[in-house]
């Protein structure tokens, strides 16, 4: 008697590698697009961080080289950095006044 878990594990092992890569490539592409959109917004705010661009470029290079795990990781890093810079811009729209010499 083969357990359900063993059957699932066997199926996963026997899945063609290309099917696993295709799913990863799609996920990576979406992550890159999301990061790029936020990075563009940061640039439009005139508060782009170079680290965002570095991570984004690394994600793109990894996508082109087919290194999807690395690409996903770099895309998520770029997204987090871009998001932080946008939040900084939003916060500073009013917070700068607190620093003014009075």
């Amino acid at each position: 008697m083969v357990s359900a878990f063993a059957r699932t594990a066997l199926v996963a092992l026997l899945l063609p590698a290309s099917a696993v890569l295709a799913a990863s490539a799609q996920e990576t592409k979406e992550a890159y697009s999301a990061a790029k959109a936020l990075s563009d917004k940061a640039a439009a705010n005139k508060n782009q961080w170079p680290a965002t661009l570095t991570a984004l470029a690394a994600a793109k290079a990894a996508i082109e080289a087919g290194r999807h795990d690395e690409a996903l990781s770099k895309a998520k890093e770029a997204e987090a950095l871009a998001r932080a810079s946008i939040e900084q811009t939003e916060r500073e729209k009013t917070a700068w006044k607190d620093a003014v010499i009075r």
Partner: peptide, 22 residues
């Protein structure tokens, strides 16, 4: 110009004033 001077920016979260006023 005043706002630009006092606004924090960049990954280090510094404004011009962080260094040159504070």
């Amino acid at each position: 110009g005043k706002q630009y001077f006092y606004t924090r920016r960049g990954q280090l979260n510094f404004s011009c004033a962080s260094c040159h006023v504070q």
